[in-house]
Write a protein that binds this DNA or RNA. Sequence first.
DNA 1: CTGAAAGCGCTTACAG
DNA 2: CTGAAAGCGCTTACAG
Lengths: 342, 342
Amino acid sequence: MEENNEGKDFLYGNKITIADIAENLGVSKSTVSRAISGKGRIGKDTTKKVYDYIEKYNYKPNYFAKGLATSKTYNIGVAFPADVNVGNTPFFQGLLLGVCEVAAALDYDVIVTTVKDSDINLLKRLVENNKVDGIILTRNLLNDMAISYLSENGIPFVLVGSCEDESIIQIDNNHLEACEKLVSLLLADGVKKIAMIGGDRKHIVNRYRSEGYYKALNNYGLGIEHELVFLDCYSPVFIEQAVRNIVKSKADCIVCTDDVICGRVLSFLRDEGISVPENMKIASFYDSYHLETHNPPVTAIGISVEDLGTEAGKRLIGLIDGSNNNKKSILDYEIHLRRSTK
Amino acid sequence: MEENNEGKDFLYGNKITIADIAENLGVSKSTVSRAISGKGRIGKDTTKKVYDYIEKYNYKPNYFAKGLATSKTYNIGVAFPADVNVGNTPFFQGLLLGVCEVAAALDYDVIVTTVKDSDINLLKRLVENNKVDGIILTRNLLNDMAISYLSENGIPFVLVGSCEDESIIQIDNNHLEACEKLVSLLLADGVKKIAMIGGDRKHIVNRYRSEGYYKALNNYGLGIEHELVFLDCYSPVFIEQAVRNIVKSKADCIVCTDDVICGRVLSFLRDEGISVPENMKIASFYDSYHLETHNPPVTAIGISVEDLGTEAGKRLIGLIDGSNNNKKSILDYEIHLRRSTK
DNA sequence: CTGAAAGCGCTTACAG
DNA sequence: CTGAAAGCGCTTACAG
């Protein structure tokens, strides 16, 4: 009779409980529970018996019952920007895969929610419904609503990006330094007039990148020429206008703060018959596949988005599980010098 | 005393329960529960009283308790391919955003899990741990393990893609027809020799696309020239070799089954100094942003990945909630004729 | 080292 | 229309 599960694979709905195990093994539910969790002092034999049974009948604890008793979800939330512009870069996709990978390894699952500009209602809902143990924020906006909400309510979270508040766990590359080095290298290489086209300054990361640009120029004893710097270029029209002006002012190089901008710039230059790198050198940020396979291949700061994701996941789960080190994680970047700046 | 929550916003951890509401309102827990769920016959006044209280004190039902009692998670799982090649297209990102959007509207959350080739262990774990009410599969492989696993165990799921088993809810574009039309249009436009470069044939979708190509040629009374067809081109090396052969055989047009392949083809042609469309026309599938902004803009079948996601989410949640219509959803596509085939 | 029992916060027959 | 009570399947003090 009690053998009627023999040899059967897992069948959905055909769940056994701790009570079943206890009964079949002639011990109490408490004992089974403790054997499984490893908490408390349990006899070796009992433990083995329980484990064998579990193995054989593919016991899986009831997620809800466990949660109700312990208040842990074993879920982490990832806040995904759902603004118009993100769809064109695989940045968040890569990040998410990184998060999923660690999460899986540490027995967590990943719930995705979206944040549209500063509308954090879905994020709030996720948190208030108690569906996650913590949150990964994947960017930092100026006056970020998500950050203040999570901070104020004491929800565990980490930020992929940088911010001033050192009590927040941050995972980032050093964008400022990376941009500074890139621009310095280009200057050392004989470039005379470097322009910059930057994205939305509400995104803190764009500020770091332009700072790096300024710093490099400064170190080189060059002043900032305002007709060479275009920030807040989040629409194709702005970008094209910026390129037009830059060309007019005889710059010989453009640094773009992200790949989407860079793609637009390249496309526009081709339209205008301005060849890269002969008439204009181009460099960009975050080395997506498209820059590498572009013709000519584009010089870029390469960062590993998967690594950002795995690190963020690891840090968040650490935080949830009580390892309370909140040092910032700074990940590496690489400068890929390619033909577009030769 | 009972006013000590007055005016306070939601504070994490400071949760009120149905028992609290019942006590403060002088009714029983059952009544509160029924008022909230709307099940059973409840007095109008009582309902209003409960709703007002809930509103005022921002009551959120305990997710675990509810789940334990009802066995519903209000989560749907999305199986995300984590193979090497997907990172370069924003396809799954777009799909995911679409799913998140409906899910949010219907009060569900979205858990992402990954499937690497035919390793479905993480998917199994998600299901066996009872963390989701159903699954969205985002592609169909030959002999797909995920499909058989979910089918056999009676787990609600939908497939973004097509398969023969009509009992499975499918959401797809008509790739065969789309490709057939595209090729027919090109032929009608005077193209003489159309080659095809197709991706991995383990992906069912690639088979539909090449079928469409064959069919169009057939309708036109043209035979299949085997030196013009290259399938299973999943690596850059294969793609380049295919292009070389195609050029050699004097074809005047290449249809690519996806944008990643197309990107490679374009890049290689540029390397070789073969200009598009003068010396070679190019068309592709799934109109990503890059094809549109490419120079020259690339002719492509455009499908809305977000729409696939929202439809999949809607159908799955319908299935979970008991609307048992399993007709296939066929979504529109557009043929964007652009300069690359002029 | 092990058991009996209470508790987590819901839902839902059952009875009125 | 409403209440008292049992039940969902775990965990964990408490007692031995």
